[in-house]
Structure formats: structure tokens, C-alpha cells
């Protein structure tokens, strides 16, 4: 099995995540889509590490995981805060800021 297929898979996952961000309306779902994108990148990195025969990609995946985790923490706390104030997490309901 050629590693290229993993690249395609990760691109697909990334695209799914990106589309999800654009299409879904629930902040948490959007957020999860972003995480999906990050992990798709991880897959890309690891695959390239294999193709290139260097370890760098795998190490980078570690860092990405860390960043993703930190992002989760910050993101969840922000979403929680707004949820507690407004009782909804829909992006559409966030409409105070326009033009």
C-alpha cells in the first residue's frame, strides 16, 4: 500500500473538517471539526515522515497534539462561558456583532 493513500485520506479528513467548520452551526461541533483538521494534519505529517524517512514529522505530530490540547482547553472554556450566559452554543445565535 503506497503511503500516498494516507496523504489522500488526510486531505480528505482535512477537507471534511473544513467543510464542517463552514457548514455546521453548533460551536462545539465546529470546534470538533477544527480538531479533526488538526489531526488530519498529524496524519499528513506522519506519512511524510515515513515517505521522507525522517523522524521530524512524527515529532511535529507530538507538538501538534499539545497545541490541539491547549486549544481544546481554551476553546471549551470560552464556549462554556458563552453557553452559561446565553444557554445556547449555536453560532447563528451569536449575532450581536454585525457590520
Amino acid at each position: 500500500m503506497s503511503p500516498t493513500i494516507y496523504l489522500l485520506l488526510s486531505a480528505l479528513l482535512f477537507a471534511i473538517g473544513a467543510v464542517g467548520v463552514l457548514v455546521r452551526r453548533n460551536a462545539i461541533v465546529v470546534f470538533m471539526c477544527i480538531e479533526l483538521m488538526l489531526n488530519a494534519v498529524n496524519l499528513t505529517l506522519v506519512t511524510f515522515a515515513r515517505i521522507n524517512g525522517s523522524l521530524g514529522g512524527q515529532i511535529m505530530a507530538f507538538f501538534v497534539m499539545v497545541v490541539a490540547a491547549a486549544e481544546v482547553v481554551v476553546g471549551l472554556s470560552i464556549i462554556m462561558a458563552i453557553f452559561r450566559t446565553r444557554r445556547t452554543t449555536s453560532v447563528d445565535d451569536a449575532n450581536l456583532l454585525k457590520y
Binding site: A27, I34, V41, T44, L45, F48, G75, L96, L97
Partner: peptide
């Protein structure tokens, strides 16, 4: 609301940055 927007869009864009990084690494 601004925090959520900033966060979601910011995370979105940093994912793009990251994918770019991955491609350049490749």
C-alpha cells in the same frame, strides 16, 4: 461572542497554517 468568533476562526486558520506546514515538510 467575539471571543468565540475569534477562537473558532483563529483555530480554523491555524489549522490551515499547519496543513501548509505539513505540505512544506513533505
Amino acid at each position: 461572542e467575539s471571543a468565540v468568533k475569534y477562537f473558532l476562526l483563529g483555530a480554523f486558520s491555524s489549522a490551515f497554517f499547519l496543513y501548509g506546514l505539513a505540505l512544506l515538510y513533505g
